[in-house]
C-alpha cells in the first residue's frame, strides 16, 4: 500500500497545485486588456468620474494581486461574486445550470462509453476487414465535422424532417424524468457521436497495441481461442489505457457540451458561459472558466489514479 498510497497522494497534490495555477492563469487571462472591466461596462463615452466610481465599487482600484486573492478567497468559500450585467449572484445561477449540464453529460457518457468500447473491440476483432473499415470511415467523417454542425444535421433530418425528437432541448424543473430524457435525446445523440469517434479510435489503438505484444502471440501459439485471448490476456492489460481514453474523452465531452448547449438552447453552463462572454461579463466568465477547468483537471486526475491502481507492478512491490 505504501508505494501506491504515496503515488496517489502525489497525484492528488499535483492536481490541486495545477488547479491553483490555472486559477491564476484564468485571472491573468482576463487582465491583459489595456482597458479594464469598468471601461467595457460603461463604454467609450463614459466620464472619468463615472469610471472611477465604478472602479472603486468593483475594487478595481486595488492592485491585481489583492483582487486575485479576494477572488480566490471568495471561490473557496463558495462566493463567486455577482454578475455585472444582471447583478445576480453567480453561484445561485450556476448551481442549477451545472446540474443540467452534468445531467446531459451523464447520459451522453452512459451511452457512449460502453458503445465505444464494444465498437473498439469489434474493430480489433475484424481488423482490416469491412467492419473495421466501415467504423473507421464513419468515425473519420464525424471527427471532421464540428459539433455544432452535427447538431444541426441531426436537428434538420431527425428533428424537423422525420419529427422523431424535439429540436429544441429546453427543460424545466417541473418536467418528469421521461420528458426530460425525450427533450435531451438529440443533444445526447450529438455528444455521443462526437465522443464516440475519438474514444473508439483510441480504444482500438490501445487494444491493438496490447494485441501485438509477445504474450498475446504466445497465447495464440498455444492454441487459445480468440475470445479467451482477448478476455484473459488482452483485456486486463488494456484496462489502464482504456480508462485513460474514457477519461480523456469525458473531459472532451465537458467542452463539447458548451457548443451543443448553444445549438439546442439547453439551459446549462455552456450557454451561460457563451452568453456572458459576448456580454463581456468578466466575473461570470472567470467563474465558469474555473469550473470547466476544474472538471477537466479532475477527470484527468481520475484517469491517472486509475492507471496507478490498475498497474500490478505497483500493487505488488518487491
Amino acid at each position: 500500500m505504501g508505494l501506491v498510497g504515496k503515488l496517489l497522494a502525489q497525484r492528488i497534490a499535483l492536481g490541486l497545485l495545477l488547479l491553483f495555477l490555472v486559477s491564476i492563469l484564468i485571472f491573468v487571462g482576463t487582465q491583459i486588456l489595456p482597458g479594464d472591466v469598468a471601461q467595457s461596462v460603461l463604454g467609450q463615452s463614459a466620464t472619468p468620474e463615472a469610471l472611477a466610481n465604478l472602479r472603486a465599487e468593483m475594487g478595481l482600484d486595488q492592485p491585481a494581486i489583492t483582487r486575485y486573492f479576494a477572488w480566490l478567497g471568495g471561490v473557496l468559500t463558495g462566493d463567486l461574486g455577482t454578475a455585472l450585467t444582471s447583478g445576480q449572484d453567480i453561484a445561485t445561477s450556476i448551481a442549477g445550470r451545472l446540474a443540467n449540464t452534468l445531467f446531459l453529460a451523464f447520459w451522453a457518457a452512459l451511452i457512449s462509453v460502453p458503445l465505444a468500447i464494444f465498437l473498439g473491440l469489434l474493430a480489433v476483432r475484424y481488423r482490416d476487414r469491412w467492419p473495421d473499415k466501415l467504423i473507421s470511415a464513419v468515425t473519420l467523417a464525424s471527427i471532421s465535422i464540428p459539433e455544432f454542425l452535427i447538431g444541426y444535421l441531426l436537428m434538420y433530418f431527425i428533428g424537423v424532417k422525420l419529427g422523431w425528437a424535439p429540436s429544441v432541448a429546453t427543460i424545466y424543473d417541473s418536467m418528469s424524468l421521461g420528458e426530460k430524457l425525450q427533450a435531451i435525446a438529440l443533444p445526447v445523440a450529438v455528444l455521443t457521436l462526437v465522443v464516440l469517434a475519438h474514444m473508439m479510435r483510441m480504444t482500438r489503438a490501445a487494444i491493438l497495441n496490447v494485441m501485438q505484444s509477445a504474450y498475446v502471440e504466445t497465447a495464440e501459439l498455444k492454441g487459445l481461442s480468440m475470445f479467451k485471448i482477448i478476455w484473459r490476456h488482452a483485456f486486463p492489460n488494456s484496462i489502464a489505457p482504456i480508462v485513460n481514453v474514457v477519461m480523456l474523452n469525458l473531459a472532451y465531452l465537458v467542452v463539447g457540451v458548451v457548443v451543443v448547449e448553444v445549438v439546442f438552447t439547453y439551459p446549462g453552463m455552456g450557454q451561460y458561459l457563451v452568453d456572458h462572454v459576448s456580454k463581456r461579463d468578466v466575473p461570470v466568465v472567470q467563474a465558469c472558466g474555473l469550473i470547466f477547468a476544474a472538471v477537466y483537471i479532475g477527470l484527468n486526475m481520475v484517469a491517472d489514479i486509475v492507471s496507478i491502481l490498475a498497474n500490478p507492478r505497483l500493487r505488488h512491490p518487491k
Partner: peptide
Amino acid sequence: MSIPTLIF
C-alpha cells in the same frame, strides 16, 4: 494544456 482550449 490543462485548460480546455475552447474554454481558455
